[in-house]
Design a protein around this nucleic acid. Structure first.
Length: 533
RNA sequence: GGCCCCUUCAUCUAAUGGUUAGGAUACUGCCCUUUCAAGGCAGCGAUACGGGUUCGAAUCCCGUAGGGGUCACCA
């Protein structure tokens, strides 16, 4: 493919749940590394101590591993540029800041956050065109600086941005972007707590780690002139910057928790397959030849070309992901789906509280998502509760679960949807009422007749016979006709008796899984219930 | 508001100066069908607007409109 091996990175900050945008950037970065024989690096940008969340880093790594977007280098596995956690690289930033100070490219600023706050308020009140730091400390004399330091005044280090002319930055997709130097402000590089800001740390590390391409979100464009100036101040060559489009909510705003699930953990809990989500992310801003929409990572790589990325911001359409996930589920070998279902149930076990129904006012506004989320919670509870039985069945009695898989596979779009079909195979009692047996345009009496007829038919049949399904089909039709019913209404009450629901996997196949004895018992239970009701 | 970015069906996108503007999701209808799915077929549906350039513009240029991002000692 491309010429030189690219060294790329994804640089999330551990401030909360692993974000779908991180996975999106990881995918495109990794793709560039893999198509050029380069390396994909995970760097943890933990320079904000106030927002730091302890679990977050582990979750980020776990989520990337789940998606098979594992980095070649990172805090978990080390590498030639270790450490990969910025909090462990503090001396480098300090030294870099000192260098800039020494060369007069940066200056110490003693302004308090109170002054900055009032400054901002005044600027807003005046509707000033330029908001931001006024550069007061830029002109401090050496004596003043010494006096401030002697007095132990806290300070930050700011970059001296040029005050005249244009700053030209280059973006891989957009070409040259021009910014007016005078409109840029002197950004903070080192905070008063001694930690670097993102701006400093990211440049120092990208340079130290030999990063060749910075593929990051479009929201970084406004600070790119600052980053170019930093490279210039250090005398380093800047990498290629490629600003990817932002993933969007339905209303086109930047994807956000309130309007769209953003946590990768949510997608895993909801039963999306990692390969489906990764495929879907690959569809955001990119397409394969011949309208191919379903592809493996290898196929993606075969066609990947950074230059072909579409930079219009794509809306993250959960409904399409839902469809795609169903496609992936249907493609899974039975044994694999079985394994994943058990794993999913295990994942959801003992978490009922998390999946409690959401109060009306906390439900998402958008209709598809609202409905999805409501059902997802219900199903998660059901599947989690079923976990012990599924695990036992999988490990101790595999011949029980295995035949169920083909019956439910083509009905599912997410793994948790199995909760709609699985319980009937593990429950012996159903909470139905006589009304549940009444079919459209039919009476309770019809239902009773259908149950009796079906019982007789089933009792006299041999479930082991290879033609059993065909025979049941033929006999059902004949019996239905004899009773003056269509096959649907005829089997409806039987379905309710056997599965406890009007909706179920194919009836006869389900009966075969349950076995004759259990099936007859269920029909008898229903007959009894109707007789008493 | 200043600066910057973006703009093909509702949504994801294809078409890199010549196509009846293609595919997919969603939606609708029909078929299949033992419920629900899945599947098959069909329908609906877009080049934001206005100027240029050109024999010819979704495609190149300018303007307008709309949308988005960003303006922290957060990333």
């Amino acid at each position: 493919m491309s010429a030189k091996p690219a060294r790329v990175r994804v640089a999330p900050s551990p401030t909360g749940d692993p974000h779908v945008g991180t996975a999106y950037m990881a995918l495109f970065n990794k793709a560039l590394a893999d198509t050029t024989g380069g390396q994909f690096i995970l760097r943890i940008e933990d320079t904000d101590r106030t927002r730091y969340v302890a679990d977050s880093e582990a979750q980020i790594f776990e989520a990337l591993a789940w998606l098979a977007l594992t980095p070649h280098e990172g805090p978990h596995k080390g590498g030639p540029c270790a450490p990969y956690r910025q909090s462990e690289r503090l001396p480098m930033y300090k030294e870099a800041a000192d260098t800039l100070l020494r060369h007069g490219k940066a200056y110490k600023c003693y302004c308090t956050s109170e002054r900055l706050e009032t400054l901002r308020k005044i600027q807003q009140a005046e509707k000033a065109k330029l908001l931001g730091y006024d550069g007061l400390c830029r002109s401090l004399s050496e004596a003043e600086i010494a006096a401030n330091d002697a007095a132990g005044k806290p300070c930050v280090v700011r970059l001296k941005m040029p005050r005249e002319g244009d700053i030209e930055v280059h973006d891989f997709f957009r070409g040259v972007l021009k910014f007016i130097a005078a409109e840029q402000q002197d950004a903070v590089l080192l905070k008063s707590d001694g930690f670097p800001t993102y701006h400093l740390a990211n440049i120092v590390d990208d340079h130290a780690m030999g990063i060749t391409h910075v593929i990051r979100a479009e929201e970084w464009i406004p600070s790119t002139p600052l980053h170019f100036e930093l490279y210039r101040a250090f005398g380093w060559d800047a990498p290629v910057f490629a600003h990817m489009p932002l993933l969007r909510n339905k209303d086109k705003s930047k994807i956000s928790k309130r309007k769209n699930p953003t946590s990768l953990l949510w997608y895993r809990d909801a039963g999306f397959l990692p390969e489906a989500l990764r495929n879907f992310l690959g569809l955001m801003g990119f397409s394969l030849p011949n309208d191919q929409e379903i592809f493996t990572y290898d196929e993606f790589l075969r066609h990947f070309d950074l230059a072909k990325v579409n930079i219009g911001g794509p809306i993250f359409d959960l409904q399409k992901l839902h469809w795609l996930n169903g496609e992936y589920i249907r493609k899974l070998p039975h044994a694999e789906l079985e394994k994943r279902l058990v794993e999913q149930a295990k994942l959801l076990m003992h978490r009922e509280r998390e999946f409690a129904d959401l109060p009306e006012d906390q439900l998402p506004q958008e209709t598809f998502l609202r409905d999805f989320e409501t059902k997802r919670r219900q199903r998660s509870r059901v599947l989690g509760a079923l976990a012990p039985e599924l695990m036992t069945s999988y490990e101790v009695n595999p011949q029980l679960l295995a035949p169920i898989i083909p019956l439910i596979q083509e009905r599912m779009h997410t793994l948790v949807e199995a909760a709609d079909y699985l319980p009937m195979f593990f429950t012996r009692e159903f909470a139905y009422t006589p009304e549940d047996f009444i079919q459209k345009k039919h009476t309770l009496d019809d239902a009773k007749k259908a149950l009796a007829a079906a019982r007789e038919m089933l009792a006299g049949s041999d479930l082991e016979h290879p033609d059993w399904l065909t025979r049941m089909d033929e006999q059902s039709r004949a019996k239905a006709e004899q009773l003056g019913m269509k096959i649907g209404p005829y089997l409806g009450p039987v379905r309710m008796a056997i599965t406890g629901s009007r909706v179920s996997p194919p009836l006869m196949e389900s009966i075969r899984v349950l076995g004759k004895e259990e099936a007859l018992r269920r029909i008898d239970a229903a007959i009894n219930a109707l007789a008493q009701g």
